[in-house]
Simulated assay, not measured.
Amino acid sequence: MGSSFCFLCGCVDQASVGVIERWGRFERLAQPGFHFFNCFVGQCLAGVLSTRIHSLDVRCETKTKDNVFVHLVCSIQYRVVKENADDAFYELANPREQIQAYVFDVVRALVPRMTLDDLFEQKSEVAKAVLEELEKVMGTYGYSIEHILMVDIIPDDTVRKAMNEINAAQRLQLASVYKGEAEKVFLVKKAEAEAEAKYLGGVGVARQRQAITDGLRENILEFSHKVEGTSAKEVMDLIMITQYFDTIKDLGNSSKNTTIFIPHGPGHVRDISDQIRNGMMEASSAQIDQQ
């Protein structure tokens, strides 16, 4: 392990520590560098340990509280403590198997008390529990646990598929709610716009009728003053006939209009004017009776 031997000397590489024995008994630790050994008194370099950080990936299968089988992948980073390298050299024959066994023990004792959702949320707690246990046990064997990372949590394929389907269904439900709210807002705004348009249209019609009434009144008064001997009735009849012929002219000038004519003539215009006048007179008499 990164060292060379000879009968009288040995070399220990950097980031390593050597174990020197005398007659098969541990004597001392050898730091990196060149060392002489007295072979006549049984002194020799028994072995070399690396003090670099090692990484061990442990894959453990266990079951959660809600009966879901999962595979947990833990990455353990450990190293040999220089001052206790003799314990690491003599106590453990296979430290990787020892670490793996303790990881299995802690994970299979802790994870069955969690649901799958809790395991995903609290995976750092699992890593912390494994770290505390390994530090307490491996410290007595001359090893230091640097970091423990919970690399991956892999449920069964059917469970992952079911979780994805649940998530997709929840998102579709939420999307339907948002879509319904959007349609509701659209319909409300559309109704408000239609109401506003009808209101403004009514205001426009009222103003148009008011303007027509004012114009007719001014025309009647002006015509009555300029032409002596004419009454308001005669002026009104003349205006109605003029508008009638203007309407006929507009219909004739437009080639795209589809018009159905009913029996009509100037006499009908007079009848319409009589009906309007009679209605106005009846309304005026009703107001006088109420007073």
Results as ranks from 00 to 15, higher is better:
9 C>R: 09
15 A>V: 04
18 G>N: 05
22 R>P: 00
23 W>F: 13
26 F>N: 05
26 F>S: 05
38 N>T: 00
50 S>W: 03
53 I>M: 03
59 R>E: 12
60 C>H: 06
76 I>K: 01
78 Y>I: 03
86 D>Y: 11
87 D>H: 15
88 A>D: 07
92 L>R: 02
93 A>E: 14
99 I>R: 03
108 R>N: 14
113 R>G: 07
115 T>D: 09
116 L>W: 03
116 L>V: 01
119 L>E: 08
123 K>Y: 07
124 S>H: 14
127 A>Y: 00
127 A>R: 00
133 E>N: 11
133 E>S: 09
138 M>E: 09
144 S>C: 13
144 S>T: 04
146 E>N: 08
146 E>C: 11
150 M>V: 07
154 I>G: 02
158 T>I: 11
161 K>H: 12
165 E>Y: 05
166 I>V: 08
167 N>W: 08
169 A>S: 11
170 Q>C: 01
172 L>G: 05
173 Q>T: 09
174 L>P: 02
175 A>C: 03
176 S>L: 10
183 E>K: 11
184 K>W: 06
187 L>E: 15
188 V>M: 09
202 G>L: 14
207 R>N: 09
207 R>E: 10
211 A>K: 05
228 E>H: 13
230 T>G: 02
231 S>M: 04
232 A>Q: 07
240 M>R: 09
240 M>F: 08
241 I>M: 14
242 T>R: 11
253 N>S: 12
254 S>H: 13
262 I>F: 08
271 D>C: 04
272 I>S: 05
274 D>I: 01
284 S>W: 07
287 Q>W: 04
290 Q>A: 03
290 Q>F: 07
